[in-house]
Amino acid sequence: MSTTEHDHSTTTRLSLNLDGTDRTADVDPRSLLVEALRDDFGVTAPKIGCATGDCGACTSRVDGQITKTCLRLAVSAEGSQIVTTQGLAEDGELDVVQQAFWDEQAFQCGFCLSGMIFAASELLAENPDPSEQDIRWAISGNLCRCTGYEAIVAAVRTAAARQREIPQRG
């Protein structure tokens, strides 16, 4: 019960474009980016499964690059444009990868979805017709404890096929 001391660990002002909106919050400069997103900006789509860069649950797209946000300090993202799975849907419409993950039952508990969905999106941006092996390698930076990966691979394949069929949006 402290009365004399005050812990004013100085906070730092952090400005981001988060899921399409300019946002500002005061963050503890020691915070990981995932902690700031979740605790200070209230965007909880990125999860903390390990905080050591091994599971991918914290993945978001930072300035176009998929990023394990537990591996970056929040302050290093000043001015960045960050997209989480919450911001992937356009006008409430799921993107092709999200839709395929739903249709193919590519998740159970869903805790791994941020990592899996972003890894799949990045793969499809580079390779519209990935092989099974390509898909497995692309998502292998992420862990899933529930699905055995089989349905995730199927969903990425479905997303790829659908993406090849439909002309790109915008």
Partner: peptide
Amino acid sequence: VRRHDGDAYVSGRIGYTDD
């Protein structure tokens, strides 16, 4: 059939305890 609330899952809108 698909998960009834699958859209909320894939768009990061499911609130787990720590959320």
